[in-house]
């Protein structure tokens, strides 16, 4: 059992989708619509200016900016960074209470109720996409009126992160079941993907060779972030070779 995968443990790899995301960096305009969509979809509390200045704001997806050249001859590159849902995630084995592990669909899941807040996973994430709840979450009036009932609110003291909108995956599966059909490519759209005006992000099942995400991964333009660390991320970035 040198290389155990979650699908081997939980059942047949064929029958479960293997979720992945492809992001075309050449399309990304850095508009941060995905950041806003994510925050409202996933009940991410606002930090307020004081706490944000201290580095306590939460963005499950963030836009990293890279500058090339000197002003005014400057080029900016944007890279949306979210949880990479690594197949060999460094954050998982270090948790003493199994608050995070790999599920059969390749999601790196975070169980808030189990978390005791050692923050070891957050340290061990090379992408720094795990967030800690410093306080009991609060929303400025009237933001609490738009909370998403499908997403739990995380108490103080636990770590949270992007879930690939696991609740939307669940909803799509239930809908497909109700309509008595197979889950089709494009049925699942995380909030960030749905809100991207440039359609830079694509989400789907990478075990299905005909899915859009599989085709983008196979396009020859794709790369993984910090792939040299061997974390095998499920987020693929596409950019022109330059």
């Amino acid at each position: 059992m040198a290389d155990t995968t979650a699908s081997q443990v939980e059942g047949d790899a064929q029958s479960v989708p293997q979720w992945a995301m492809a992001i075309d960096l050449d399309r990304c305009t850095g508009c941060e619509a995905c950041v806003l969509a994510c925050s409202s979809e996933n009940n991410i509390p606002t930090a307020g200016p004081d706490q944000a200045a201290k580095g306590r704001s939460k963005q499950w997806i963030r836009i990293d900016r890279y500058y090339e050249g000197e002003f005014p001859d400057i080029k900016v590159k944007y890279r949306p960074v979210l949880c990479q849902q690594c197949d060999e995630a460094p954050c998982e084995p270090v948790c003493p209470v199994f608050a995070t592990y790999q599920n059969a669909e390749g999601l790196n899941v975070q169980i808030y109720n189990r978390c005791i807040g050692t923050r070891y996973c957050a340290n061990n994430c090379p992408y720094t996409v795990r967030f800690f709840n410093w306080f009991t979450p609060e929303w400025d009036d009237p933001l609490e009126l738009q909370l998403n009932p499908d997403v739990s609110i995380r108490p103080a003291g636990v770590v949270e992160k992007c879930t690939f909108c696991a609740h939307r995956i669940k909803r799509a599966k239930l809908d497909a079941e109700a309509e008595d059909r197979e889950l089709a490519d494009g049925d699942v759209q995380p909030a960030c993907v749905q809100s991207c005006p440039a359609e830079a992000m694509v989400f789907g099942d990478k075990s299905d060779p005909d899915s859009r995400v599989s085709k983008m991964i196979a396009s020859g333009r794709s790369e993984q972030l910090l792939s040299e660390l061997g974390t095998k991320p499920r987020v693929f970035y596409l950019s022109k070779a330059d």
């Binding site: 059992m1 040198a2 290389d3 155990t4 995968t5 979650a6 443990v9 197949d87 060999e88 995630a89 460094p90 954050c91 998982e92 084995p93 948790c95 199994f98 995070t100 592990y101 790999q102 095998k232």
Partner: peptide, 15 residues
């Protein structure tokens, strides 16, 4: 109660 973490084997003397 097998849970996969970090692609590690379920049981391993090292771990």
């Amino acid at each position: 109660y097998p849970l996969v973490t970090g692609g590690m084997p379920i049981v391993s003397g090292w771990a």
